[in-house]
Simulated scan of single mutants.
Amino acid sequence: MSAEHFDVPAIGSGRSGLAAARGLLGEGLRPVIPEASGRAAGSWPGTTAVPLVSPARYGSLPGMPFGGDPDRYPRRDEVAAYLLRYAERLDVDIRIHSRVAAVRADREGFTLDLEGGGHLDARAVVTATGGFGRPSRPALPGIGTFADTLLHVSEYRAPQVYAGWRVVVVGAGNSAVQVAVELAEVSRVGLAGRAPVRWFPRRPLGQDLHFWLTATGLDAAPLGRFQSRPAAMAVIDDGRYRAALAAGRPERRPCSPESTAQPSPGATRARRKWT
């Protein structure tokens, strides 16, 4: 099968891929977006269904405002719908169900091999696949013999589904805390993590955190190169989540890295875990 020729493919139709494609169009180039899923919103439709930690005003892509109250914190479905609208307005070739299996360099540029056959030749390639497509599922002790259902946080949709359940949420970052607090309204919930939850104010000095990150340039600073290990994630909070944990909704359940405790054989079917 002969290859199609493009100036620059942008792999993935999430926020980065769509923004990159618009920038390439502005430079007079002919981009194409191969997208593994069945719609032009990247992995956003399958991410955790909790409010974003950044206001809507910081979720806009070039040329199209997010819409609505710019200071609200939109949920996942709003972001996915926005990306679909953006893709419709973007005059670029988006190929859904086109997963890139390999990228090969040659003298003329690059060749992208697509799963199921097909090839794209290009002068350059933009990789915009992000980190949501393959959620991390750690090999926790006891998973192989756990009698009930274990879910990744990306599969969480709404708390009402788990009303009356006993739930353990594993983690201490924003997603874990947000999900645990929501679930605690309808379920018995424990929040388990190796380290205490670290808090960061959502609106220091009266402005959203992202305002200060943008104003100071820290949002674009290459700070990672100076870190010997990944920075511990702090939970961005306006006080609500911290108050909920202090009140035991959810209940904090510290655990150690050496813990090898396994679920008891008689564990109720109404127990689920998120990792």
Rank of each mutant, 00 (worst) to 15 (best):
S54F: 05
M64D: 10
A20C: 08
T47D: 02
R72W: 03
G26S: 08
L18T: 07
S60F: 00
D71V: 00
R89D: 12
R76S: 09
L52K: 03
R39I: 04
R22N: 13
V53S: 12
Y82R: 12
E27P: 00
D71T: 04
Y86G: 13
E78L: 11
A41D: 12
A56Y: 04
L24R: 02
E78M: 07
W44K: 03
G68S: 11
D69V: 01
G38I: 03
D77L: 08
G68A: 04
L61T: 04
L52W: 08
Y86V: 07
G68R: 04
D77A: 14
A80M: 10
W44M: 15
G28P: 04
M64C: 04
I33N: 14
S54E: 11
A40N: 04
Y73T: 02
P34D: 07
G42K: 08
M64Q: 12
V32L: 07
G63F: 01
G46C: 02
Y86R: 03
L83S: 05
A80T: 11
G42H: 09
G28Q: 11
G26E: 15
Y86K: 03
T47F: 13
L61G: 06
I33L: 14
W44R: 02
R72D: 04
A19F: 03
P34R: 01
P31G: 14
R22H: 14
R75T: 05
S37H: 14
T47N: 10
P34Q: 09
A19H: 00
R76P: 02
G67C: 08
D71C: 00
T48E: 05
D77G: 02
W44N: 13
R39A: 14
G63K: 07
P65D: 13
L83M: 09
R75K: 06
E88Q: 15
A20M: 08
P70F: 05
R89M: 05
R89Y: 01
E35K: 01
L18P: 01
A20R: 01
E27W: 10
S37F: 08
P31E: 10
A19N: 08
A49P: 09
P74A: 08
P62A: 03
